[in-house]
Design a protein around this nucleic acid. Structure first.
Length: 498
DNA sequence: AAAAAAC
């Protein structure tokens, strides 16, 4: 792709080029998030009243130690918002409320086609863009518009005239880096802000980034932890002294001990050394209690927004379990029952546990004449990019993936997720991985669209793990018979998909 | 006893 050939240095967009279609004809769901306002009028009024109450209430004293509880904004979704001090925030009813630059507003309206802030945007954006630019830990449902929150946060704070990195966004996968960079580039279209990303750098095989480039002059830098760390330390091409805002996307994974905690902490410390008031933003759909504790200790004096875990398993995604007597019944169920129904619907992602099973399942399905592709971390970057490009364009309907794609991947056409393997932690014995489960099924049903998820169970351990998942989210997951194709058709009809 | 990044 042309933009990759440009390398890590500059994907500059000073004057608006003719609208270029990214990812072929596929739109990012983000475009829709601000348009879909499902919130009933009454509820919104109620919310505004609560906000007003908060804003007019006498300021409490006591400094940063006393957290002020703002209250459940919306009883049904159990959102808990707490501000770290007495800064009054009013939720943004329009993007104009945020005092953004005209260029940025133009990007929001004419490029992104946004009309008004989504719910999470209305709540978090004032916290992000209002001085004194406090830290924020924010949890919001899958597909509710988190990306826009932190991208707008970064863009509203950088100075296009200063040719140095001022905003840094760290993501867990290459695919997410690319996706987020696309959003930044589109939103920044009229601002003159440029971006650098680790994905551009390492897909270019001409040379390594360090030998080819001088210091990065782009205002917004997006990347995966390993390369970013190298850019800061060994290569010394990423200057951190002007960075004002640091974003962790999929923050719970970035801070998890078995995730990227070490890299993230090192980067944070590295940047903080030269910053008195670095603004740190954490965004994710999930925060396990353990990671939540760690995040709140690590990012002190932060505003935060959390959602009860029960409220996260969205009812828009219909979930089912299918008991399969044997492993071969599992693959038959996939081929003979699920695929015929799925192919009519849109696109599907089949999640498996290991790299090996991803390519093995891919081979077996292909040998049986099923058109599909697979992606996992063992592929080369070029192969990964190609697979994603084909899926984005709609040329492939069925994508087999490891958890490389479990989080953040935003493709509106995905209507069906299959957990060919139930997500488990790497513990003795396997425990279900609740967060990964939620992220996986959240690849479907983006922005209030319909979606369905099938869990294939083959042994007692699978059964146990799914029961635990049901209990954890306090959600009954109904059965479908493995050998009854009418059953699956019927269920998809119930889900509003067939 | 995995996956993600990257050495």
């Amino acid at each position: 792709m042309a933009e990759q050939a440009a390398g890590a240095g500059s994907t500059a967009a000073p004057s608006p080029p003719p609208p270029k279609k990214l990812w072929a004809d596929v739109e990012f769901g983000d475009e829709l998030e601000a348009l879909t306002v499902t919130e009933p009028e009454k509820k919104q009024q109620q919310q505004e009243e609560e906000e007003d109450l908060v804003d007019t209430s006498p300021a409490e004293t006591g400094g940063s130690k006393t957290l002020k509880f703002v209250g459940a904004l919306e009883a049904e979704t159990e959102i808990k918002k707490v501000v770290a001090d007495d800064t009054p925030y009013t939720s943004a009813k329009s993007f104009e409320d945020l005092k953004l630059s005209p260029e940025l507003l133009q990007g929001l309206y004419s490029e992104m086609k946004f009309e008004k802030p989504s719910k999470i945007q209305a709540e978090t954006l004032p916290m992000i863009v209002t001085p004194p630019y406090k830290n924020l830990i924010a949890q919001a449902h899958n597909g509710s518009g988190k990306t826009t929150c932190f991208v707008l946060g970064m863009l509203s704070r950088v100075d296009p005239k200063m040719k140095a990195p001022q905003a840094l966004c760290v993501c867990p996968t290459r695919e997410l880096v690319i996706q987020n960079e696309e959003v930044v580039l589109r939103m920044a279209r009229y601002t003159g802000v440029t971006t650098a990303s680790t994905a551009n750098a390492d897909s270019n095989s001409l040379s390594t980034s360090s030998s080819r480039l001088g210091k990065i002059v782009d205002q917004v830098v997006i990347g995966t932890p390993g390369t970013l760390k190298r850019w800061m330390t060994k290569d010394r091409i990423l200057e951190t002294k002007h960075i004002k805002i640091l974003v962790f996307d999929e923050a719970d994974q970035m801070l998890a001990q078995d995730g990227f905690q070490d890299d993230s902490m090192r980067m944070l410390k590295n940047i903080e050394r030269s910053h008195v008031n670095l603004q740190v933003l954490l965004f994710s759909a999930t925060f396990s209690d353990q990671v939540k504790d760690f995040a709140m200790r690590t990012i002190p004096r932060a505003n935060y927004i959390f959602v009860e875990k029960e409220a996260l398993s969205l009812d828009v995604i219909k979930q089912y379990k299918i008991h399969c007597p044997t492993s071969s019944a599992k693959i038959d169920t996939l081929k003979d029952r699920i695929f015929p129904a799925a192919e009519k619907l849109g696109q599907s992602i089949i999640f498996v546990r290991t790299r090996g099973s991803a390519s093995e399942l891919h081979k077996r399905l292909e040998a049986d004449g099923h058109k599909c592709t697979s992606i996992q971390g063992g592929l080369t970057h070029e192969e990964r990019d190609r697979v994603i490009r084909e899926f984005r364009s709609g040329r492939t309907k069925i994508l087999i993936a490891t958890d490389v794609l479990a989080r953040g991947f935003d493709q509106a056409q995905v209507t069906l997720v299959v957990n060919y393997d139930i997500p488990v932690k790497n513990t003795h014995p396997y425990e279900p991985d609740y967060e990964t489960y939620l992220h996986r099924i959240g690849r479907s049903g983006r922005f209030g669209r319909k979606g369905a998820a099938f869990n294939l169970l083959v042994n007692e351990q699978d059964e146990r793990n799914l029961r635990k998942i049901e209990r954890h989210f306090n959600k009954m997951i109904p059965d479908v018979a493995w050998d009854d194709d009418n059953g699956i058709e019927q269920v998809l009809k119930d889900a509003g998909l067939a």
